[in-house]
Design a protein around this nucleic acid. Structure first.
Length: 357
DNA sequence: TAGGCCATCTGGTCCT
DNA sequence: AGGACCAGATGGCCTA
């Protein structure tokens, strides 16, 4: 499957330069030819020099013209050190150099394929984390961070058996993320920054799940109204908001529109069996040292009034600079470029079932 | 221009 | 022996 990554036109020149991944049958021949060209550049020169050491390790025993090199580096390189043991180095004949080069080419091809698979898996992960933008694709590290936060948030929900308030949910998702990613997530969830700030956070940085104010159950408009992801999954299209193409991260997470408790801010589902939350997940929020913060990634910056409640339509105001101005953050992509992925995550079916029991 | 992100190459190590 | 995996190096692209 070609992932979005591979279909990204900006990446095509580099990717297509090494076309081995796109047609496995012709892979070897193509790679040979193209690596021949590549080797005219820096990589090739390094390869020709560096590959010798690997061939030494590999041991070329089928070489017709093989000759044992008589301590080729023995005179001055060795110095006082004892002589090396093991097989003696062999002279790099042209045939051996060529075989070594071919091994290196094959290894490069495998490595490219491996990295492409890794990127493909990462792309799949991007599709199941809470938000996604065509124009502002999450970086690899941010994808992993968001996924970790997402798992953590879901685990907390299952563990506590309660629906957290939206603010806590978003705070958890954005923990340790960079400012642009925070903006993106907030944009996906269409939160007003004023909703994003709590008294708790003003005082001590906040803690996940510590706030107990009622959930704000107003609908958020899905960015892709016509998207099938916003359509009812199974017989839940009776809700007028659904009928009008509305869905929200929170809604989709908790099955709000389809549940009789949809308008109840205080709905509490039954307690779930305790879910073991890995010790890697500290419940301490920003104040605590996070393993993800070692590189000095931003914590969230909020604007607006502390603890203020949602009033008007969502107005995205994130960003350290936008905190004062209260204008739309330029990091937030347009709505039509964003959509939520909750609907597609299998975990949501289970969660919905759980909350509807 | 610096910094972030990425793809690729490369050599080393470990495993089968 | 060969493949998988890993980390370092390098260069390109993009953005503030």
């Amino acid at each position: 499957m070609l992932t979005r990554l591979f279909s990204d036109p900006s990446l095509l020149p580099d990717v297509q330069k090494y076309s081995g991944w796109e047609d496995s049958e012709e892979e070897d021949s193509k790679i040979k030819d193209e690596d021949q060209d590549t080797q005219d550049g820096t990589a090739g020169s390094e390869l020709r020099d560096g590959s010798q050491t690997q061939s030494e390790h590999a041991g070329e025993d089928d070489d017709d013209d093989e000759e044992v090199e008589e301590e080729e580096d023995g005179e001055d390189a060795e110095g006082d050190r004892p002589k090396k043991r093991g097989p003696k180095k062999r002279k790099m004949t042209p045939a051996r150099v060529e075989r070594s080069r071919m091994r290196r080419v094959k290894a490069n091809t495998r490595e490219r394929t491996r990295m492409h698979d890794l990127n493909s898996a990462l792309d799949n992960l991007r599709k199941v984390v809470p938000c996604y933008s065509k124009t502002q694709k999450l970086s690899k590290i941010e994808t992993l961070r968001l996924a970790k936060n997402y798992i953590w948030a879901l685990s907390e929900i299952l563990r506590s058996g309660k629906r957290p308030d939206l603010v806590s949910y978003v705070q958890t998702l954005c923990k340790g993320l960079s400012q642009p990613t925070t903006n993106l997530v907030a944009g996906c969830l269409q939160l007003n920054s004023r909703n994003f700030l709590t008294d708790q956070q003003c005082q001590d940085g906040g803690r996940y799940g510590s706030s107990s104010f009622p959930m704000h159950s107003y609908p958020y408009q899905c960015a892709r109204l016509s998207s099938p992801h916003c359509q009812p999954v199974s017989g839940s299209n009776s809700h007028p908001l659904r009928a009008h193409g509305y869905c929200s991260a929170y809604d989709s997470l908790y099955g709000g529109s389809g549940s009789p408790e949809y308008n109840s801010p205080e709905y509490e589902g039954p307690l779930s069996p305790p879910l073991c939350v890995s010790g890697n997940f500290s419940l301490k929020h920003q104040g605590a040292a996070s393993p993800d913060n070692e590189k000095g990634y931003y914590s969230m910056h909020y604007s607006g009034l502390p603890g203020s409640r949602p009033t008007g339509p969502p107005n995205l105001v994130f960003g350290s600079s936008g905190a004062r101005s209260g204008i739309h953050s330029e990091n937030v992509p347009p709505y039509h470029d964003m959509h939520l992925h909750h609907e597609r995550a299998p975990a949501y079916d289970e969660l919905n079932a759980f909350f509807h029991n």
